[in-house]
Computed example of a mutant assay.
Amino acid sequence: MTTALQEDRLVAVLRAIDETGARTVLDLGCGSGDLILRLATRASCTRITGIDTDLESLRRLQARLADLPADARARVQIANASMTAAHRSLRGYDCATLVETIEHLPHADLNRLERALFADMRPQHIIVTTPNADYNPVLGVPPHRFRHPGHHFEWSRERFGHWADGVAARNGYSVTRRDVAGTHPALGGASQMAIFRRSGQVP
């Protein structure tokens, strides 16, 4: 069962995917498949691939997929694989999504993710969401703590923007950002989203 904030995030990501017109979607760090299950029921998505390093999450996803109609299941493939390694077979997707996943990576792995996804696999669009540290006081999170013990960082909107702009510039993408999930007039949303669009040239 998803929380209200997670549901808001998923709705925002689905809307962003619709805006890209993507028919093939790669979900990195797919977990137990909250996004994949929603995509699988859409006839507009012809191929959906989820990867994760957590086998137990993938088993739960496999069980959840079994409840879908056969035509929806046929659109989905899942694999035990890392988002920080390039996979030749995963090149050429219209859109890749990373929903609340990058904050689970050590900082050193962000460079590996950039090389694998933005420099090698290079989907046409990439959608990233991550917690907005500016919003943490609204959730009662003390300044010295993160929302989840598995997080290695939680970025302010300024820090996230700096990272997104740098990744885009280095790899031939443009980027726009949005606040999502319970937007506060001064602090933004519980999460923040970057939508990358590949340009014709690599810098």
Rank of each mutant, 00 (worst) to 15 (best):
C95D: 06
C95H: 08
C95Y: 05
A96C: 09
A96D: 04
A96Y: 12
T97H: 01
V99W: 00
V99A: 12
E100K: 04
E100R: 03
T101R: 03
T101H: 04
I102H: 01
I102F: 05
E103H: 05
E103P: 00
H104E: 02
H104M: 01
L105K: 04
P106S: 00
P106C: 00
H107F: 11
H107D: 06
H107E: 13
H107N: 07
H107L: 09
A108N: 01
A108E: 11
A108M: 00
A108L: 03
A108I: 05
D109P: 00
L110C: 06
L110S: 00
L110V: 03
R112S: 12
R112G: 07
L113G: 03
L113S: 10
L113P: 06
E114I: 02
E114P: 03
E114A: 05
E114H: 10
R115G: 01
R115M: 08
R115T: 08
A116P: 09
A116F: 02
A116E: 02
A116M: 04
A116T: 03
A116R: 05
A116K: 02
L117F: 06
L117R: 06
L117G: 05
L117T: 09
F118T: 05
F118S: 09
F118E: 03
F118Y: 07
F118V: 07
F118K: 11
A119G: 02
A119K: 10
D120K: 13
M121P: 00
R122N: 01
R122H: 03
P123C: 10
P123A: 02
Q124E: 15
Q124P: 07
H125Y: 15
H125G: 04
I126T: 14
I126E: 10
I126A: 14
I126D: 06
I127Y: 12
I127M: 13
V128P: 07
V128T: 02
V128I: 15
V128H: 08
V128W: 15
T129A: 10
T129L: 07
T129V: 09
T129F: 07
T130Q: 08
T130G: 03
T130R: 06
P131A: 13
P131M: 12
P131E: 08
P131F: 10
P131I: 10
N132H: 05
A133Y: 12
A133W: 08
D134L: 14
Y135I: 06
Y135V: 08
N136Y: 02
N136Q: 09
N136P: 02
N136E: 04
P137L: 14
P137K: 14
P137F: 13
V138Y: 12
V138L: 15
V138G: 13
L139K: 05
L139M: 11
G140W: 13
G140I: 14
G140M: 10
G140H: 12
V141P: 05
V141L: 14
V141I: 15
V141A: 08
P142V: 11
P142I: 12
P142G: 08
P142Y: 10
P142E: 10
P142C: 10
P143V: 12
